[in-house]
Amino acid sequence: MECLQECGFFDLVPAMCHLDYTMSELGGASDFVREYTLASGGPYCDCGYKKKA
């Protein structure tokens, strides 16, 4: 995250994080799950994938 701030790209991070859901949907085999992101002010990133039933 520090490099993104230093390079002036931190404002793009929320959009990049949003793509996680889109990419998971395109794959079709799993659902992307996340409660927090650092980009949205969360205390940590807790992303992962859950296999579709």
Rank of each mutant, 00 (worst) to 15 (best):
residue 50 K to E: 04
residue 36 Y to W: 12
residue 35 E to K: 14
residue 43 P to A: 11
residue 10 F to N: 10
residue 7 C to F: 14
residue 45 C to G: 02
residue 40 S to H: 10
residue 39 A to D: 07
residue 28 G to H: 02
residue 33 V to L: 01
residue 29 A to P: 02
residue 47 C to Q: 00
residue 13 V to R: 12
residue 51 K to D: 04
residue 32 F to M: 07
residue 6 E to P: 09
residue 3 C to I: 14
residue 33 V to S: 00
residue 21 Y to L: 06
residue 25 E to C: 06
residue 38 L to E: 05
residue 29 A to T: 11
residue 4 L to T: 15
residue 49 Y to N: 03
residue 46 D to Q: 02
residue 49 Y to M: 02
residue 36 Y to I: 05
residue 2 E to V: 13
residue 48 G to A: 03
residue 1 M to F: 15
residue 16 M to C: 11
residue 40 S to A: 12
residue 32 F to Q: 00
residue 36 Y to V: 05
residue 30 S to F: 14
residue 28 G to P: 05
residue 10 F to Q: 14
residue 8 G to D: 12
residue 52 K to G: 06
residue 52 K to C: 10
residue 47 C to W: 01
residue 27 G to R: 05
residue 8 G to A: 09
residue 17 C to W: 00
residue 47 C to H: 00
residue 15 A to P: 03
residue 1 M to N: 15
residue 39 A to Y: 03
residue 15 A to Q: 13
residue 7 C to P: 07
residue 45 C to W: 00
residue 25 E to Y: 12
residue 48 G to N: 01
residue 31 D to I: 02
residue 22 T to Y: 06
residue 33 V to P: 00
residue 53 A to C: 07
residue 24 S to V: 09
residue 30 S to A: 15
residue 52 K to V: 12
residue 47 C to N: 00
residue 38 L to Q: 07
residue 14 P to R: 07
residue 35 E to M: 09
residue 44 Y to K: 07
residue 12 L to G: 10
residue 40 S to I: 05
residue 50 K to P: 01
residue 25 E to W: 06
residue 34 R to S: 03
residue 43 P to T: 09
residue 6 E to L: 14
residue 34 R to Q: 05
residue 3 C to F: 15
residue 29 A to R: 09
residue 5 Q to R: 15
residue 41 G to R: 10
residue 46 D to T: 05
residue 11 D to I: 09
residue 2 E to G: 13
residue 38 L to Y: 11
residue 1 M to H: 15
residue 52 K to F: 04
residue 32 F to W: 06
residue 53 A to G: 14
residue 47 C to P: 00
residue 11 D to C: 07
residue 48 G to H: 01
residue 24 S to K: 03
residue 38 L to C: 06
residue 41 G to Y: 08
residue 8 G to H: 12
residue 23 M to H: 07
residue 31 D to Q: 08
residue 9 F to I: 07
residue 47 C to S: 00
residue 25 E to K: 14
residue 18 H to I: 02
residue 46 D to E: 04
residue 47 C to F: 01
residue 50 K to A: 02
residue 42 G to I: 08
residue 38 L to A: 03
residue 42 G to W: 11
residue 12 L to C: 13
residue 23 M to G: 03
residue 3 C to R: 15
residue 41 G to V: 05
residue 20 D to E: 05
residue 1 M to V: 13
residue 34 R to G: 01
residue 17 C to V: 09
residue 7 C to K: 15
residue 27 G to F: 09
residue 50 K to V: 03
residue 33 V to Y: 00
residue 30 S to V: 13
residue 29 A to L: 12
residue 20 D to S: 08
residue 21 Y to P: 02
residue 23 M to Q: 06
residue 35 E to W: 05
residue 32 F to C: 03
residue 13 V to M: 11
residue 25 E to P: 04
residue 28 G to D: 02
residue 28 G to C: 04
residue 32 F to A: 02
residue 48 G to D: 00
